[in-house]
Design a protein around this nucleic acid. Sequence first.
DNA 1: TAGGCGTCGATTGTCGACACTTTTGGCTTG
DNA 2: CAAGCCAAAAGTGTCGACAATCGACGCCTA
Lengths: 234, 234
Amino acid sequence: MRAMSPPVGLPVLAESDLVRQVARRLTDAIVQGRLAPGAKVAEAAVARELGISRAPVREAARLLESQGLLRASPRRGFFVRELSARDVDELYDLRLCVERHAAVEAARRLTPSLRDALRRQLALMRELARRDDPVAIVEADYQFHRLVCEAAGNARLLRLFDGLASELRIVIGLIGRLYDDPEEIARTHEPVLEAIEAGHPERIVAHIDHHIGVARREVGRLVQSLTPTIPEIP
Amino acid sequence: MRAMSPPVGLPVLAESDLVRQVARRLTDAIVQGRLAPGAKVAEAAVARELGISRAPVREAARLLESQGLLRASPRRGFFVRELSARDVDELYDLRLCVERHAAVEAARRLTPSLRDALRRQLALMRELARRDDPVAIVEADYQFHRLVCEAAGNARLLRLFDGLASELRIVIGLIGRLYDDPEEIARTHEPVLEAIEAGHPERIVAHIDHHIGVARREVGRLVQSLTPTIPEIP
DNA sequence: TAGGCGTCGATTGTCGACACTTTTGGCTTG
DNA sequence: CAAGCCAAAAGTGTCGACAATCGACGCCTA
């Protein structure tokens, strides 16, 4: 007999609003790497594990599909999205596009409380880097960028950023350690914040470009090492 | 060599995927203005009308919700999204952000066939403007911008653009005539294409900004006139 | 022995049903 | 006559069931 349901221990859910809860749990499982890229997400298995019926699971899967976390294969089910090097390229292109805009906009609207929030986040990153906590660093990194997008004051932009980040986390979640030198990644954020505080669009864009370029190379390298020439079947 | 199915060009069968079909029908109804903003989309009614059960309708509705076309109110159902002036602002902010990037990228990758496609689309717009076909003008306008995004060679960017365009069509679909002067809207596209062909990023951005600014004002004006101080009930 | 074919189990796509909630419409009451 | 309340109706959230389809395994054939 073949191993059926994933061995991921998911607690049984309470009633009402099951779809969102299922979507969240599946998202967590994916971005945390417990559901690997390419893994099948069988509705029946998930439903059994959560103690619910298949209907809410299906709806949640559709949601995640539209977010790019799952891939739907008609009559065959849902699978965790596999990201090629090209996918990562596309995602970072969009991140660049979105975060440039967000940072410039954030600078225009910067309030003292927003500025303080960004400073605190940066301080947290430095602290985590000093303590060499690679998992927390990645999370803090993400939160810093999210704060910038939040500061831009465009709810849709924030949702867009969240979507891009989720997809990238499919690959980032596969490893605990994203950066060789955590201190460096904390340092590369400093000029970004400085540029935002100073409010020079050109400098903001330049530093964002540099910083995201670094992350892009890291993740690109990672994807290379993870996909040892898997032939694509179109 | 992989000897698979013969290269005989057989069309893929129309999968009996009800969810996509329902999603498409609902989308069409919304962007064509047959379903007005705020209108209730009752699953049971839609299912009855289409002669199917509620399950596929629910899944389709979830899809449209994640695309921003519908709004879900727990235990009360789905409603066509109502766009405030602020929503339109957000959408145009993102359009600006996305299309600047797309145009610059399109210029970098411009091939003769792409260039010709853009020229043909522009010629079509001029022709439609001359014939004063306001509905077709809006569609051709959309297609021109979509081509630019397609030319950027980033599938996600294109999907993103489609999503923004869909949402905007909620309001645009309410009227047949978007622009006072169709000829003008055709003319404002010309410098955009010229800048892309010339490949000057600054000029591209400048012209995109100007052109989208025009559309933004038009739609903004429209939204103002459509929402005569409707009190928001959160 | 390698490759194609048919059968079987497993899973998806869709459906109808049931409980509970919200809305509607009428009736009572101040 | 308006406001409030109660009951009926409609609609959502969820479930279990059934047919259609896919993948895997084993068998048959060349």
